[in-house]
Amino acid sequence: MAKGKVVYHCGLDAAVDVVGGKWKPMILWALHEGTLRFGELRRNLPGVSEKMLIQQLRELESDGVVRREVYREVPPRVEYSLTELGEALNKALEPLGLWGDTFMTQILAAKAAQRAGEPAA
């Protein structure tokens, strides 16, 4: 494979490349209701560091799913929103979020059992 060239083996491979990691799906979900400034995004994502949020936003922007708009004001204002591609991706993530809502209690119980050294139910 040539240096820098990305090759996907299937659609899931491409999708996971774009949303891989803990924060990217959360960022996309936070932006589904509309445009947010950096500080608003950070408040919507408890636990994310400023450095990580900046990195993840840059990657999502380079993948074409997040739009970054800088307003030439003092102080400068930067807003983030979903592109058409990002909105489509967010719709694809909806069933995954519903699955998580449905099975959250079971997932938490399994993780607690694992930490306690018990076999999963």
Rank of each mutant, 00 (worst) to 15 (best):
E69I: 13
V6R: 07
F38A: 00
Q114C: 13
V78P: 07
E73W: 08
E59Q: 14
V18C: 02
S81H: 06
G97I: 02
W29E: 03
R68S: 10
R58E: 15
P76V: 07
A15W: 05
W29R: 06
K5M: 12
D101M: 11
Q55L: 15
V74I: 14
G11P: 05
N90Q: 14
L53A: 04
F103I: 06
L57W: 01
L82R: 01
L28T: 00
E73F: 08
H9F: 13
D13P: 10
G39V: 02
N44I: 02
D101Q: 14
L60S: 00
L93I: 06
R72E: 15
R67E: 14
L31D: 00
K51E: 13
E61R: 09
W23I: 00
L12Q: 12
I107R: 08
E118I: 14
A120L: 15
R37D: 11
K51Y: 12
V78N: 10
M52K: 14
I27C: 00
L12K: 08
H9D: 11
Q56T: 02
Q106Y: 13
M52I: 14
P76K: 06
A110C: 13
E59S: 11
V66R: 01
M104N: 12
E69T: 14
P25V: 00
L93F: 03
M26Q: 12
L28K: 00
E94K: 03
R68Y: 04
L108I: 13
V48S: 01
S62M: 09
K5N: 09
A120P: 11
Q106W: 11
A112S: 11
G4S: 10
A113W: 09
A88I: 06
V19L: 02
D63T: 09
D101G: 08
A30F: 00
G11Y: 04
E84G: 14
Q106T: 12
R37F: 05
G21C: 01
E84P: 08
A2P: 13
W29V: 01
L85D: 15
E50Q: 14
A2N: 12
L53I: 09
A15T: 09
R77G: 06
E61G: 05
K24V: 00
A30D: 00
E33Y: 03
L36C: 07
E94M: 05
D101P: 05
Y71H: 15
Y80M: 03
